[in-house]
Design a binder for these strands. Structure first.
Lengths: 153, 153
DNA sequence: CCCTATTATCTCGCTGAGCGAGATACTCGC
DNA sequence: GCGAGTATCTCGCTCAGCGAGATAATAGGG
């Protein structure tokens, strides 16, 4: 066994964090009778909401890696549970806008709020340069993971 | 809308990273005709391997949040694909040890290697104190996510 | 030792998420 | 207003994961 590089500790920690966060979402899902995909969908929808972007059925499916049939089923499920509403887009009536219900937002905040608050608290414990390092690192990892397909740059 | 706290940027980045890494695993899965759960299982198995711990069917299922029936089906799938072997434990012959095939390890390294290498490279770009901050932050987040259930401490 | 309780895994039958193929509804350029 | 293109939906199917219960092995009290 080759002597392990010390940088690998960060790699393993990173993976452990994603696993742990995934399990946390799964707890939210099962507690509310939802499936992991539904939670991912709600998160994507709330992201769009925060960025003030309209979310259509198609864009949602693409973000989650579903095909159109699966997307329809997903939205059906969320709509049946009262978490979202379908609204025909006025400019292009082929599109279906998906709007998150206020109650679903509150549900999410009630569950994820404590964890988010804890992370905010953690961040406050670091000085400016340390926070910059954390922010830079996370941003670069996101970048790297998104582009990790094509072998060449 | 209340003025957003600046610490929230880190929270959103963190979530974006987990989403991106999740999609990356999903690409690995679909490229090799596997399901997301199978990839999570292989990761858990390789983790155990690195830590020199034996992994049984039961422990694997628990780590992934599957019940016994689902776990059996999962191991069947992985075994059929040649990624793992079932081995009866000698000390307690009720247990079934799951061993990862060397070829599956190589498959994973071939796919995740570039991304891991990129992250190692990134880490090298930070000085000691910055790396300590990143490591500390990730460790604390993992902790927080794992304990985020019980409201009181 | 045997008998019972306990633990680990597997089998069976079922539900439902997500897929491929193709239908339907709407838009846009000609 | 017709044909090509785009967004979503419908249908039928496959298979991941669940609940219930069977099977196999161990542990302990008598």
């Amino acid at each position: 066994m080759p002597s392990p590089e010390p940088e690998m500790e960060i790699v393993h920690l990173l993976r452990a964090v994603t696993v742990e966060l995934g399990l946390h979402s799964a707890r939210f899902a099962s507690r509310h009778g939802m499936h992991p995909t539904d939670v991912r969908a709600l998160i994507a929808l709330m992201d769009a909401r925060r960025a003030d972007e309209e979310m259509t059925a198609g864009r949602l499916g693409a973000a989650l890696g579903l095909n159109s049939a699966g997307t329809t089923a997903l939205v059906d499920r969320l709509e049946r549970a009262g978490h979202v509403r379908r609204v025909r887009a006025e400019e292009d009536r082929r599109k279906v806008l998906i709007e998150v219900d206020e109650r679903a937002v509150e549900l999410g905040q009630a569950f994820f709020g404590p964890l988010i608050g804890r992370v905010v608290e953690l961040v406050r414990g670091y000085d400016e340069r340390e926070v910059a390092a954390i922010r830079g690192f996370l941003g670069e990892v996101r970048e790297a993971a998104g582009e990790a397909d094509r072998p060449a740059r």
